[in-house]
Design a protein around this nucleic acid. Structure first.
Lengths: 196, 196
DNA sequence: GCCACAAGTCAACACGCATTGACATGGCGT
DNA sequence: ACGCCATGTCAATGCGTGTTGACTTGTGGC
């Protein structure tokens, strides 16, 4: 592709260390795949971002697909569900959704990455299982509702929906529309996480 | 790409008619882009699917990107917001979301198509404007709430979220979880479209 | 201080792609 | 019936890609 807005020299000059360069490549891949998607991301871009060489990627990861699947696993990783304050949760989320999606935020990149994976028929099932284990189950636990799997589902769906909306909206909401939006989103989320 | 499961000879042999072939190419592009995404879809695939020739595409659409943007516009097109019965709307949607995403359903393909566009930084702004004009505005009109732009936003976001959830879930919900899910989704949507 | 092997570099390959321009041809107006 | 122009065909070109193999260079153990 082109610019990932990352001066190549931010990468600290490593001594010869296979493990370190492997890790650097993997990190660069997570970023690049999230921003540009699988196909538009070339191994040369990733190598440049990692301050490494293209030829190492087939060698260390067995090819582009190997690198992608490993990046996917690393992205979904047990990333602990923050111990959110339940009384502030809905409003915090609403405020966040009213803002602009920040490309610099790693969470935005992670989400784009997962969304990319969701649109590909081959990676979608893999993603589905990972989401079930590492996303839905924790949410259900957080909700403290052993029987209510569907509540986690609904909450996750709504959450994802607002993330997508924010993504395609681009800019932050302003003025009256913002306050109204925040109010309504808060109410919706409260309706789900509250006893019902 | 490869197989779009469409025997090339299903395309009725046209007489020489630029408009017809243009339309055929556009239709094929909408299908192909929805299934395979922008990058994995080659102009050769589209041409084959349309029963046409590759070289006509740069000629008629000014290149691959031109074809894509036109296909995007055509996909978002004012696609009649069905005159939904307001009293049945939420439950109908909830039932739909509880089912499995059907790849054969053109609407599923369309949605995947749009989601693809949402994750690409280049196509996301374009999509944003299109959604604003052709999705949010009609919804607001349907809600009959001239001042409440944010309500359309929230409804659209939730709708999209459930579509994504259904996509990555893969299978249909069953039994008790299904009924609970439907109930809860119905309530959420009613909470938004109802007076609030 | 040297040596062997891991780690990194570089050039080249084969492939698929979009795009271009020159060529053939069907069909409509006269 | 015929000629002209829009319409469709085809081969060729240039570019970017992933991957490979041979080469160089750094570095830890002796």
């Amino acid at each position: 592709m082109s610019d990932l807005a990352e001066p190549a020299h931010l990468v600290a000059p490593r001594r010869r260390d296979a493990g370190a360069t492997r890790a650097a490549i993997l990190e660069a891949a997570k970023r690049a795949f999230a921003v540009t998607g699988y196909d538009r991301t070339s191994l040369r871009d990733i190598a440049a971002l990692a301050g490494s060489d293209v030829a190492l990627i087939p060698r260390y990861f067995g090819g582009k697909e190997g690198l992608f699947t490993e990046a996917l696993k690393a992205t979904i990783a047990p990333d602990r569900l923050r111990d959110w304050d339940r009384s502030r949760f809905s409003r915090d989320v609403a405020e966040m959704m009213a803002g602009a999606a920040d490309i610099a935020d790693p969470r935005t990149r992670t989400f784009q990455f997962l969304l990319q994976a969701a649109t590909s028929p081959t990676t979608a099932p893999l993603l589905g299982r990972a989401v079930q284990e590492r996303f839905l189950a924790p949410i259900r636990d957080w909700l403290g509702d052993a029987a209510g799997q569907e509540r986690a589902r609904v909450l996750a769906a709504i959450y994802i929906g607002f993330l997508v909306e924010r993504l395609i909206r681009g800019a932050a909401l302003e003025g009256a529309e913002r306050t109204a939006f925040v109010e309504r989103v808060t109410a919706v989320i409260d309706g789900v996480i509250g006893p019902g």
